[in-house]
C-alpha cells in the first residue's frame, strides 16, 4: 500500500531511490569515459547511446527524489560528499580494458533488469510508471552486452583470456549489488519491491550461469565476502576522484546557472 505520509515509508523509498539513481549516474559516467576509445566506431556509437540512457534514467530518479523533498537533482549529482552516495561499488571502480567494462555493465544490467521487474507493481506509482518505461529501453543494453560477452567468450585466444581476467576482477563486487543496506524488509512490507535480495541474487545467478555456458566461460563459484558496502556509504578513493572531476565546474560557482 502506498502510504507516502508514513515517515518510514518515505524514508525507505528515498533511500532506495538514492541507490538506484547513484548506481545509474556512476555507471553512465564510467561508460562515457570510453567515448572515442572503443575498439570500433560501432562500439563508440553503442556505448555512448547506452551511457546516455543510464544518465537519463539517473536524472529521472533524482527528479523523483526532489519531488519527495530532497535537494534539486544537480545538487544531488554534483554537490554531495562521497559518504552520502548509495551506489554499489561495482559501478564506481575505474575502467580497465574493454572486456572489464563490458562485463561490468553486463553484470549490472542483469541485476537492474531483475530489480526493475521487481518494481513493476511498486506501491509508489511515479516509480512504477517510470520503471515500466525504462525496462523497455534497457532491453537493448542487455541484448548488446550479452552478445558481446558471448562473442568474446567463444573467440578464444586473447579475447577469452581477457574476459576471464575481467570476470575475476569483478567477482568480489557482484554481491554488493544485492545489498539494500538494511531497508529490504521494509521495501517488501511496503510493497515497494516484490522480491527479497536473495531471490534477486538467485535469479541473477540463473541467468548468468546460462550465459556463461553459451559463452564457454567457467562459473567462478561463490561470491567472496563483501569487504565494503557502497550502499552504506563505504566507498573507494576512485569514487572520491570521480566526484571531484564530475563536480569540478559545478562547484567552481555553486550558485551559478549553467
Amino acid at each position: 500500500m502506498n502510504n507516502i505520509n508514513d515517515l518510514r515509508y518515505r524514508e525507505v523509498l528515498i533511500e532506495c531511490l538514492y541507490q538506484m539513481a547513484d548506481d545509474k549516474l556512476l555507471l553512465g559516467h564510467r561508460d562515457s569515459e570510453w567515448l572515442g576509445c572503443c575498439p570500433d566506431i560501432e562500439g563508440d556509437v553503442a556505448f555512448s547511446s547506452i551511457a546516455q540512457d543510464e544518465v537519463g534514467h539517473a536524472t529521472f530518479y533524482y527528479q523523483l527524489l526532489h519531488q519527495l523533498g530532497e535537494d534539486d537533482p544537480d545538487r544531488l549529482a554534483f554537490g554531495r560528499d562521497a559518504s552520502k552516495w548509495r551506489n554499489c561499488m561495482l559501478v564506481e571502480r575505474e575502467n580497465d580494458d574493454w572486456t572489464y567494462s563490458i562485463t561490468r555493465h553486463l553484470f549490472f544490467d542483469q541485476f537492474d533488469q531483475i530489480r526493475l521487474q521487481a518494481m513493476c507493481t511498486s506501491s509508489y506509482e511515479p516509480l512504477q510508471h517510470g520503471v515500466k518505461k525504462m525496462i523497455r529501453e534497457e532491453y537493448y543494453h542487455l541484448l548488446h552486452m550479452k552478445t558481446w560477452f558471448k562473442q568474446l567468450g567463444r573467440a578464444g585466444g586473447v579475447a577469452t583470456q581477457k574476459l576471464q581476467q575481467a570476470i575475476e576482477k569483478l567477482w568480489p563486487d557482484v554481491n554488493g549489488m544485492f545489498s539494500f543496506a538494511g531497508i529490504e524488509e521494509d521495501l517488501l512490507r511496503f510493497e515497494l519491491i516484490q522480491l527479497t535480495p536473495t531471490e534477486m541474487r538467485v535469479k541473477w545467478e540463473a541467468e548468468m550461469k546460462a550465459l556463461f555456458q553459451q559463452a564457454n566461460m567457467s562459473w567462478p563459484g561463490e561470491f567472496p565476502q563483501l569487504k565494503h558496502d557502497g550502499r552504506k556509504g563505504e566507498h573507494s578513493a576512485a569514487l572520491k576522484t570521480l566526484l571531484l572531476t564530475m563536480g569540478e565546474v559545478y562547484q567552481s560557482e555553486p550558485s551559478a546557472k549553467w
Binding site: E42, V45, A46, S49, D53, G56, E137, H144
Partner: peptide, 26 residues
C-alpha cells in the same frame, strides 16, 4: 549494422539493394 545509432531512438541499417546506410526507429 548497429543496434544503436546517432540518437537514443534509432538503429543503423544498410540496404543491399540501393547500397546506402539508413537509420530506423527502434
Amino acid at each position: 549494422l548497429n543496434l544503436f545509432g546517432p540518437t537514443a531512438c534509432r538503429a543503423i541499417y544498410y540496404c543491399r539493394g540501393c547500397k546506402q546506410p539508413f537509420e530506423g526507429m527502434k
